[in-house]
Amino acid sequence: MKQSNIVRITADIMFPFIMIFGAYVVLHGHLTPGGGFQGGAVMASGVVLLLIAHCDKDIKTLIPTQILKNVETFGLLLFGLSALAAVILGSGFFTNWLVNTGLLFGTPVEYGPNPGYLNTGGVIPVMNIAVGLEVLAALSVIAVIMFRSTEPDCGGEEQ
């Protein structure tokens, strides 16, 4: 079914803004409300919007499933390996090994109100990004596969 031009163009214009807002929620997860799951869901809603607006086109070229799957795997591996890195560095699994080191995301924080520094939180921002990527890709993959499978002329999932 072909959507009207208004829907398609609005979706095209909205898409980058939705993605940027989602990325903001993910990246500032350790400072402001939100985090990887919420931001990832916001970004996935952008992909689904694109999917609905351009459902008459070939979805395979519009949203390549394989790239989304790879992004999902990358996000999960980043999450798991950043937790496993603590074991390799000689402490327990899931230890926050980046916090208070002064390196990446390692600025120490005092107790009490502060304006919010991006370079804090240790592995929390890393895991936020990992989960954000995973949720974005996972929800998009589910939507794309279900959408493609219910279209009679689009054919099933390639394996």
């Binding site: 795997t73 390996l81 074991v87 699994f93």
Partner: peptide
């Protein structure tokens, strides 16, 4: 760290399996 690895190993192998299979 064995109890942590008991869960980490199957999970990480599972995460990477689709990539390796592809």
């Amino acid at each position: 760290n064995l109890p942590g690895l008991l869960l980490a190993v199957p999970l990480i192998f599972a995460f990477a399996t689709p990539l390796i299979g592809r």
